[in-house]
Amino acid sequence: MSAVLKTALPVRESPAPESLALKAEAKGLDFYYGAFKALKNLHMPVYEKKVTALIGPSGCGKSTFLRSFNRMHDLYPGNRYQGEIRMYPDNVNILAPDVDPIEVRMRISMVFQKPNPFPKTIYENVAYGMRVRNINRKSTVDEKVEKALREAALWMEVKDRLHDLAFNLSGGQQQRLCIARALATDPEMLLFDEPTSALDPIATASIEELVDELRQRVTILIVTHNMQQAARISDYTAYMYLGEIIEFGETDQIFIKPRNKQTEDYITGRFG
């Protein structure tokens, strides 16, 4: 079984450990939805300009963990964090009550499960992050919109219809538009919450290709339901189960020689 997986894995030279820099780190993170403890004492590093994947069966808390990184849970009453997520280089605990969630969200962008473009034009979708930051000079916005759309590999397809409604794009294009929207404000980190689960295989492949290119510019944390996807695009993988991180390691190690029996059972498809 592991031999089959090994040959199916993309060949990637292992990074020299000394080139690794921490971008963020969960330290003893607990999370509660009301009285329900959804995350239990999570410890996990997120390395700069690497792709870290969170995998695990439904309900294991991977999305909850991801959404802690941009304080999405603060939007709803009754949610509570305990412990820390430290962000570097400034070494601030982004979960601290005195840290404004808006500041965290301005530094860490997010792409959602289903494409969620605003019912506005393609241009205004990408420009919205700048509007929020009071960047309104047309030349600056034009330039950033183009750059973001190029980075999201969408520019060639939409450059002649920037003022069309975003809803007229296909599902895969809409998701790339959402990626462009997230990139336009130069985030330090990008969160992906199962970004391809609503897309067909071809659109999925284009998003995966994009993630692969983006790793050179930005730190990426991605939740995926699809283990092959995690194996294809991530440098590091955390396997979660029932709110705990069962195993974290380099993706190759997790998929070829998992140390934990549960991880092995999950990735070899024995359950999940």
Binding site: N70, M72, L75, I102, E103, R105, M106, S109, M110, F112, Q113, K114, N116, P117, F118, P119, Y128, G129, V132, R133, C178, R181, A182, T185
Partner: peptide, 15 residues
């Protein structure tokens, strides 16, 4: 209005 649209705005740092 879908929750996803609202969250999309908040995720970009909107107040």
């Amino acid at each position: 209005i879908p929750v996803a649209i609202r969250e999309g705005a908040y995720a970009l740092g909107a107040s």
